[in-house]
Amino acid sequence: MTLLVTGATGTVGSEVLRQLDAAGVPARAAVRDVERARPELPAGVSAVRLDLEDPPSWPAALEGVTRLFLLRPPAIARTARLQGFLDAVVAAGAAHVVVLSVQAAGRNPVLPHRQLERRVEATGLTWTHLRPGYFLSNLLTVHRDEIRERSEISVPAGGGRTAVIDVPDLAAVAVQALTGPGHENRAYELTGPEAPTWAELTATLSAVLGRPVVYRRPGAGRFLREQRRRGTPAGLAVLMTGLYTVTRLGLAGRTTDDLQRLLGRPPASVADFARRHAAAWQ
Rank of each mutant, 00 (worst) to 15 (best):
D166T: 11
L71I: 08
D54N: 07
V99H: 11
A88K: 08
A80L: 15
R186K: 05
P181E: 08
P132V: 04
L50G: 14
T179L: 01
H143R: 15
A104C: 09
T126D: 14
V120H: 11
T126N: 13
G180S: 10
I165G: 00
A105W: 00
L71Q: 04
V97G: 12
V164I: 02
L136S: 09
R81K: 10
S137H: 15
G133W: 01
A91Y: 08
E63N: 12
E63C: 08
L130T: 11
T126Y: 15
A88L: 06
L111A: 02
L70C: 06
N185L: 11
I147Y: 14
R186E: 06
G159M: 02
V142L: 15
N138R: 11
T126V: 14
E184L: 04
P109G: 01
Q103I: 08
S101P: 03
L116N: 01
V89T: 10
L178K: 05
Q115A: 02
N108H: 12
A171N: 02
V175N: 07
L100K: 07
G84P: 10
T123Y: 06
D145E: 14
P73A: 04
L82N: 06
L140F: 15
R119K: 05
E184G: 00
R119D: 03
A157R: 04
G158S: 03
T179P: 10
L136P: 10
V175H: 04
S57P: 13
T79N: 04
V175R: 05
V173H: 07
S154M: 07
F135W: 15
P112Y: 03
G160K: 04
L178G: 01
T123K: 08
A60Y: 09
E63K: 12
E149A: 10
V97K: 12
I76R: 02
E152F: 04
R107C: 03
A95N: 13
V89L: 12
P59I: 10
W127H: 12
R161C: 05
L125I: 10
N185R: 15
S151D: 11
L139W: 15
T128W: 06
V167C: 01
R161H: 06
P74S: 02
L70H: 04
L170W: 07
T141H: 15
E121L: 10
E117G: 02
G180F: 01
A187E: 09
H143N: 13
G93D: 09
T179Q: 01
R107H: 13
I76E: 00
L86W: 01
R107W: 15
F85W: 05
V98D: 10
H129Q: 13
A75Y: 07
H113Q: 02
Q115C: 00
A60R: 11
R72G: 03
L136E: 11
T123G: 05
I76F: 06
L50K: 14
G133H: 03
G182Q: 08
V90D: 05
R67L: 02
G124E: 14
R72A: 05
A122H: 07
T179D: 03
H96L: 04
R131G: 03
G106P: 00
